[in-house]
Computed example of a mutant assay.
Amino acid sequence: MTVIVRDLHSDAIADIEGFVRVRHAALPYMYFSPESVRHHLSLTPARARYRALVAEEDGEIIGTAQVGLAHESPEPGQGWLNVYVDPARTGRGAGTLLMRTAEEHLAAHGATHLYAWVLDEPGYRAFAERHGYRASRSAHFLVLDLAHTELPPLQNPPAGVELRTAADFADDPRPLFALDAEAGSDEPSDIDTELTDYDAWVAEYWKHPHLDLELTSVAVADGRPIAFSLAHTNGVGRYGTGMTGTARAFRGRGLAKLVKNDSLHRARAVGYTEAYTGNDSDNGPMLAINKWFGYEIRATEVRHVRELG
């Protein structure tokens, strides 16, 4: 049986379904849909050199990779690749072929440092190390049983602050872009990011098919967003927090708890039963907030890096 690696065909239903199936089998804590896969393929900026790859054995997709340049980083040469193989189909060489193809693509476009998330399990970490990657930072996947966990009671906003939703900014999301750019630049990461391209942000993030404007809670002061908790939903019970952030001048006032609690309560009220999120291991304040809500760590990934040349 021969394994081949090729580009994902966005117009092939079997390709998209196979990609989603493998990702959910290998990484059930993140949600992919045909719409989100096509979204990334069509709307990621050209300068990201983004590719979605599949490993195929006898016509069946058994592995996937997402590959690109960190186009939002001020430092050039930062590449990333995330490779996942169906846990039931490992040991066939799919992971190695996907990684090799991804590395060749990134090197051809000037990448000097390659970053890859690897599940914190002995076999996966050993695979990365055999291919020249060294462990760096880690991050956790957290899950909350939203249907059966008692959430903290809702609180009134402090004086001068009101709670709104992202839907209130549908006509002009630029204020949320500014807040996301500020909060996101302070997120712990191996790769620094700078959100400077508003149009690209709208296309890639604001128009993401899973973004739920109604369940994204925003704290506003003097007409300006100062904290937000971004909600992604699948419409049938699964809710995820894409990002919770607060403007620097307003941190330490409990606003992250305020907006996330508001969003979680409203998500449960409309029928969502599972809540997912992720946190860098060094993000102590957000880990403490999620523990306060009742989230539990279900898995950990370790960022690995390889330097080329």
Rank of each mutant, 00 (worst) to 15 (best):
V5I: 12
R6G: 09
L8E: 13
L8Q: 14
A12V: 13
A12N: 14
I13K: 15
A14H: 12
D15S: 08
R21Q: 13
A26S: 15
P28A: 09
E35A: 15
R38F: 01
H40I: 10
R47I: 14
R47C: 10
R51S: 05
R51D: 08
A52T: 08
A52M: 07
L53P: 04
L53S: 07
E56P: 03
E57N: 13
E60S: 06
T64H: 02
A65D: 10
A70D: 13
H71F: 12
E72N: 14
E72G: 03
Q78I: 09
L81P: 03
V83G: 09
V85K: 03
D86R: 00
A88C: 04
A88H: 09
A88D: 15
G91E: 10
G93A: 04
T96P: 02
L97P: 02
L97A: 14
M99W: 08
R100W: 03
A102K: 05
A102H: 06
E103K: 07
L106M: 02
L106Y: 01
L106F: 00
H109S: 04
T112F: 02
T112Y: 01
L114V: 05
L114C: 00
L119P: 02
L119Y: 09
A126G: 06
A126R: 11
A126Y: 01
R130F: 02
Y133E: 07
Y133M: 12
A135H: 03
S136L: 10
S138Q: 11
F141T: 07
V143T: 15
L146I: 11
P152T: 10
P152M: 11
P153L: 08
E162L: 05
E162Q: 14
E162Y: 00
R164M: 09
R164D: 11
D168M: 02
P175A: 12
P175H: 06
P175D: 13
P188Q: 03
S189L: 10
A203Q: 14
H210W: 04
L215M: 07
T216K: 10
R224K: 12
P225Q: 05
I226G: 02
F228Y: 05
G235W: 08
G242W: 05
M243L: 15
G245I: 04
T246H: 09
R248G: 07
A249K: 11
F250K: 04
R251H: 06
L255G: 12
A256Q: 07
K257S: 11
V259M: 06
D262I: 01
S263H: 05
H265Q: 08
R268P: 00
G271W: 04
G271E: 10
Y272H: 08
T273D: 12
N283R: 09
N283S: 11
P285I: 04
A288S: 10
F293H: 13
G294E: 13
E296S: 14
E296Y: 00
A299L: 03
A299W: 02
V302N: 08
R306M: 01
L308A: 02
